[in-house]
Write a protein that binds this DNA or RNA. Structure first.
Length: 485
RNA sequence: GUCCCCAUCGUCUAGCCCGGUCUAGGACACCGCCCUUUCACGGCGGCAACACGAGUUCGAAUCUCGUUGGGGACGCCA
């Protein structure tokens, strides 16, 4: 049916790359790759007042981060004005469009009046009824004019791959503007012209465009052109079933990057949101997604963007990640949290590798690597009050810690096996179980009650640091005890 | 106000098109148990849904209609 599948993503640069837009991009990209087709990037910047070149940069950067490489573009609608004018001219000559001299103010007034009377507003065709004389007069006065499409009677229908047969009475639609008085095209017109010009075979977009599609179908018919296939994807909603907005958490794809989500997770998650493969797999590599993606598995109901599931998936990916690559991903977060400076990265890489291995099954986001193990980088950690009352609860604890420090101070090899041996020996000498001593040492050296196996942590800290930290804890406990008596 | 779309566990979903195999399957979250120095990971188990009402049929989550609920669109925005 098609020589080659050609799809596009058409963001408008009025903001960052919204997760919703990103999901549409993912679906288009997967569809293109699955069919060995082309993925085209088009920037819809006809609204000059709301377009910002810097936003284009953010959008391109976001797409690159997600790994959604495009084959053509970015094309800019703002650079294609002549094309739209040419197509508009065709419609005018075919008598499928006409000029409208109504002022925006008049239209606004009429619309408001209709709203007040609670009746549905469609353009009343004032300017279609103009006589040649009236038109000539308006022209002589250089009255600004927009161009409207003429909507014939009848009904408009099309087939949507997701929503199947759709139709609408034309009388519900009005003769909408296609060219503004400054000759810039409106959204619906520019989209049709561009999709035609770029030989787009499948228009894959959010179902918020369903209503627009009827207008666009009318445009294809007026132009006597072949239509692409349409597939409207259900819209992601926030937890409260409303549109995802700034107030309800992260909206920009870059927010997720900064929060420590992996790009492959975002692609995976966005792909299975509103779509599922036949075999119910959820964790899928890029290759697997490309292999099994199809528009047939897209659901019709709007899914809610489940942050908890996203987190879970990110954790799954982190655990399965290659350690060396994980170090690369984690470093920027450590730097951003001021836990290290770029200059020392090279020398500490071996150490970082061990660090990352210890925390990879405990971190759900990259950012958590810089949070959960903070104490390994800074000496000024605080003791968790709850753990203090549970573990640092007697003067004896200070003595035990003191004994342990003495025993490790003579170790010449500070490796985890040796440390563990020493600790168990210390507990034995003290005639206590190892567990309470382990807990005390952990709290003393890390400030918290939980975390990776203690002896790995101690080895990573190094002998000198461990001694320093335990001595500090001993002082802390003594001071604390004094306060009670 | 008008039009369009949607409806299975709290959430994402499988099943629906081609009615019986569905005492409705999986995943996230939650709860319990096991593993364990802790926290996690992992393993095992549990809780939990066909929105409602009619109709068609021997039989409906599956087909039809209605009700309710939710979403979206109605700009010289995109």
């Amino acid at each position: 049916m098609y020589n080659q599948v050609r799809v596009r993503i058409a963001p408008s640069p009025s903001g960052y790359l919204h997760v919703g837009t990103a999901r549409i991009a993912v679906c288009n990209w997967l569809f293109a790759r699955h069919n060995q087709g082309k993925f085209i990037l088009r920037i819809e910047d006809t609204d000059i007042t709301r377009s910002d070149p810097r936003m284009v940069e953010v959008i391109l950067e976001s797409l690159k981060w997600l790994g959604l490489d495009w084959d053509e573009g970015p094309y800019y609608q703002s650079q294609r004005m002549e094309l739209y004018k040419r197509y508009a001219q065709v419609l005018l000559e075919k008598n499928k469009a006409y000029y409208c001299y109504c002022t925006p103010e008049t239209l606004k007034r009429k619309r408001e009046e209709a709203a007040q009377k609670k009746i549905n507003w469609v353009y009343d065709r004032t300017c279609l009824k103009l006589s040649e004389q009236e038109k000539a007069e308006l022209e002589s006065k250089n009255t600004p004019k927009a161009m409207r499409i003429f909507i014939p009677e009848g009904e408009t229908s099309f087939y949507d791959i997701v929503y199947k047969d759709l139709k609408k009475e034309n009388k519900e639609l009005d003769d909408f503007v296609i060219l503004r008085s400054d000759f810039r095209p409106t959204y619906n017109f520019a989209v049709v012209v561009d999709d035609l010009d770029m030989r787009i075979t499948h228009v894959i977009r959010g179902n918020d465009h369903l209503a627009n599609t009827f207008k666009q179908v009318l445009l294809y018919r007026a132009l006597d052109e072949m239509m692409p296939a349409f597939a409207h994807l259900p819209l992601n909603l926030a937890m409260d079933r409303q549109k995802i907005s700034k107030r309800k958490g992260a909206v920009a794809i870059t927010d997720y990057r900064d929060a420590g989500y992996l790009p492959e997770v975002m692609v995976n998650f966005l792909a299975i949101s509103g779509w599922s493969p036949k075999d119910e797999r959820e964790i899928m590599s890029r290759e697997e997604l490309v292999q099994s993606y199809s528009l047939e598995g897209v659901s019709q109901a709007n899914p809610i963007f489940d942050m908890q599931k996203l987190e879970w998936m990110n954790g799954e990916y982190i655990r399965a990640y290659d350690n060396e690559r994980l170090v690369d991903e984690v470093i920027p977060f450590l730097i951003r949290e001021n836990l290290m400076i770029p200059e020392t990265v090279k020398d500490t890489r071996g150490w970082l590798l061990k660090y990352v291995v210890l925390f990879k099954e405990r971190a759900k986001t990259l950012k958590e690597f810089a949070e959960k193990g903070k104490y390994l980088f800074a000496f000024d950690y605080q003791y968790d009050p709850k753990a203090v009352s549970k573990t640092f609860n007697s003067a004896e604890v200070a003595d035990r810690l003191g004994q342990f420090v003495e025993k490790i101070s003579v170790l010449d090899e500070f490796k985890k096996d040796k440390i563990e041996e020493t600790l168990r020996k210390t507990a034995d000498d003290l005639k206590i179980e190892p567990a309470p001593l382990i807990h005390a040492v952990r709290l003393a050296t890390t400030g918290v009650a939980g975390g990776p196996p203690l002896f790995d942590i101690l080895e990573l800290l190094g002998k000198e640091e461990v001694e320093k930290r335990i001595k500090k804890a001993v002082e802390f406990i003594k001071a604390e005890r004094k306060g009670y008596s």
